[in-house]
Write a protein that binds this DNA or RNA. Structure first.
Lengths: 197, 197
DNA sequence: TTATGTGAGTAAGTATTACTTACTAATTTA
DNA sequence: TAAATTAGTAAGTAATACTTACTCACATAA
């Protein structure tokens, strides 16, 4: 019997909670279905009633977290008109979100990417949408002459996203503190003003 | 009986070649030890004579590729004195290396990071060394006033490495072509001159 | 009231897979 | 030439992701 995904029964919630908790402690592959079910207080079989496989459970957890982040950031951006300010909000908010939610960060930066399945998932579609938003801001910024006309919008997006992700990576892996203010102003300074003397 | 790692017997070479070939086709976790051994024309047991486990095989392959890359880039950098030029060489050479060797790129950008074991590996030590080289160039650049004195060397390194990695990511995942020249000059332009009009 | 369909959950598998053990055969070294 | 080391094999085993076939509770309609 297949689950239609309309309701959210207690078993399903318990499985996701149990999995999130375990993800905070160890990496995806070393978490077993027996563990997930055991900590959730359900049987292993139930996992497969609600999720196609272990990976889909991972993608669902990621999607849930990303959803909350996305609405928050969109509200913040809407309050600003200047494109550079908007991009600064994106840099700051992304760092803030990574710092505040380590499990989410670990999944997004380290775990989901190694399987091509992810790029067909609903969670990835959400990320693409976010990425398109950034591109739109950059293009608008060039149009309004707030950004240089000779820069490639796609490459600027890559630089910004890459810088954000790389800035968090070490800190996430080794569970270090993230000085959000310092890093976000540092990135903005380099990306917008340049490093050349 | 344990292998001491002094020699490089045919079986070991065949296993690494077989594994590299499979990595070009699918992701790490969906490659089985039976497949590796089968394609190499050896038995499964032999894998565990030369490698502690499947992960160590992955790290070894990465290490081999990285080794070649590192000597090449160090020669190129040595020929340059200006720190900005040196960093431009790093950006270009990294992109070139990622583009030329997809298997290596996939392993480095997508596969090794999800296990903490990697960060204890010999391969990671090599990456740290490379990373220290970049930092040294940046610090020297600030000293020589080729780079602005108000930028944080650690953050500039993060921006550069993040931009490089992110620039390749999509192209690696979806097997697209990489326009190295365009992307490397694009990144350099933004990082050194800034995006603000 | 009773029949029926459905969603939530369980119990007991199975096939696959990473890894182990205990063994040859060949080659090097003393 | 004897001993020790290295290269390699064959046949396991324990664990794990996933499957199958079932029960129970409950809503709704005849």
């Amino acid at each position: 019997m297949k689950h239609k995904g309309q309701t959210n029964p207690p078993g399903r919630i318990k499985i996701m909670k149990s999995f999130s908790l375990l993800m905070a402690q160890k990496d995806f592959h070393s978490i077993t279905t027996a563990e997930i079910a055991g900590n959730a207080g359900v049987t292993e079989g139930l996992i497969y009633k609600y999720f196609k496989d272990k990976k889909e459970l991972l993608y669902q957890v990621l999607n849930d977290h990303f959803c909350k982040f996305q609405t928050k950031i969109e509200n913040r951006i809407a309050k600003e008109k200047n494109s550079i300010k908007q991009l600064e909000i994106i840099i700051f908010s992304s760092l803030e979100s990574y710092a505040a939610n380590r499990t989410f960060s670990k999944i997004l930066l380290l775990e989901v990417r190694n399987s091509l399945d992810f790029f067909d998932s609903f969670a990835y579609e959400r990320i693409r949408k976010y990425s398109r938003t950034i591109l739109a801001i950059i293009k608008k910024g060039i149009e309004k002459k707030e950004l240089k006309s000779d820069i490639d919008p796609y490459i600027l997006r890559k630089v910004i996203l890459g810088a954000i992700e790389h800035a968090c990576l070490g800190e996430i892996i080794f569970s270090k503190r993230l000085d959000i203010n310092k890093i976000s102003t540092g990135i903005s300074n380099i990306v917008f003003n340049g490093a050349k003397a």
